[in-house]
Design a protein around this nucleic acid. Structure first.
Lengths: 192, 192
DNA sequence: ATAATGCGTCGAAAATTCTAAACATTGGAA
DNA sequence: TTCCAATGTTTAGAATTTTCGACGCATTAT
């Protein structure tokens, strides 16, 4: 009943996944078939993993939910355990003593999102060798003045200022001021 | 050459998308066919959008790249335009005068991520009817005390405290204190 | 030049999926 | 209980996709 759908288990089987999704949305095979403009028999066969639907069929079916193909393959119904975290409970993930990076939540697979509360002491510098894989990053400065270099562009960000870029562009964060900088950042998908 | 793959254009056509991906990875139809264990003719037909491949075929083909189905449908090669934003440039997206939600970046499709700087005046309340589709959300309180209700759980979050949950769980944010609350939140995929 | 190789495309046959109409099972109402 | 409606399953045949082999067109080597 409390169906858990993780990416690594048998629900890699499209049919299994479709069945779970359909049930989560409270639809019967026939109702979904009607909305999607396919037959209930087709849905039955697919859900039993007896056939592998064409993209066009699967798309029609998902349109009846509605759910995009991207969401369908991305979706993940792993149970969310803890929801709230005190400032103390944010887990430190930085090795550099001049930089604190405290992450919201545990280091779990299957997250869509990662959020950090970062503190840069005066003089702190990430260096520019770091070039994370894929994804996108975003951040807002909360306190202090942070010097951010993204590719060839560089800017000083004051409290309230923000950035957004694709993570595969080389980037560098520095605190050239004399007070600590606090930055709240987010990346998707998570990079740690 | 600078192939741009956006979600709304013709590359919604699976074949068009596959062709771009294949070319980006520098593979010929035959080479990919060999790796994937299908025939080059099949790939040719698919890329011309003359047939709609079965999931099993598409999966075999993507395994030859290799690329997951989820990534295939999620992938996005749109260029990143502006990178930096001053606090003024964050675009306001809230209608409620008691709540300010200022978003980093423009309202573009194809982003992986959305980040907001939210301000709740004393008494502000999102109500609990809001139930965004899909995705996950995360936030850190920067100032004030925010009362957050997620499903059946409720908690008062002070500066530094945080939350993380799946967006389809009903949720509600309230400022029951007498000073404004500042919250930095992030969701993936973006909900506006 | 000419041959040789590699590319994407095409056509008919083989394989697979989808439809349409049945069947089987369940659960509730009379 | 008995009937009834709703659900998921099955099957033969129609529709679609995939394979196999051949073709035309480039580019490169001989």
């Amino acid at each position: 009943m409390s169906a858990v759908l993780k990416n690594e288990d048998a629900s890699e089987e499209i049919g299994t996944r479709l069945k779970l999704v359909r049930q989560i949305f409270g639809l019967t095979q026939r109702e979904l078939a009607r909305r999607a403009g396919v037959t209930n028999g087709a849905i039955s066969l697919i859900e039993q993993n007896r056939v592998s639907p064409s993209i066009s069929s699967l798309k029609k079916i998902l349109d009846g939910i509605p759910l995009s193909l991207a969401d369908f393959f991305t979706l993940n119904f792993s149970p969310s355990d803890n929801v709230f975290f005190t400032g103390e409970e944010l887990t430190e993930i930085s090795y550099d003593p001049a930089i604190s990076m405290r992450m919201v939540g545990r280091r779990v697979k299957d997250r869509a999102l990662q959020m950090l509360r970062e503190t840069y002491q005066p003089g702190a510098d990430t260096g520019d060798a770091m070039l994370r894989h894929g994804g996108e990053e975003c951040g807002i400065v909360v306190a202090g003045c942070l010097t951010v270099t993204i590719g060839v562009q560089e800017k000083q960000l004051n409290p309230g200022d923000a950035y957004y870029f694709r993570s595969d562009i080389p980037h560098r964060f520095r605190n050239q001021g004399n007070e600590p900088v606090i930055l709240i950042s987010s990346n998707s998908p998570p990079s740690f």
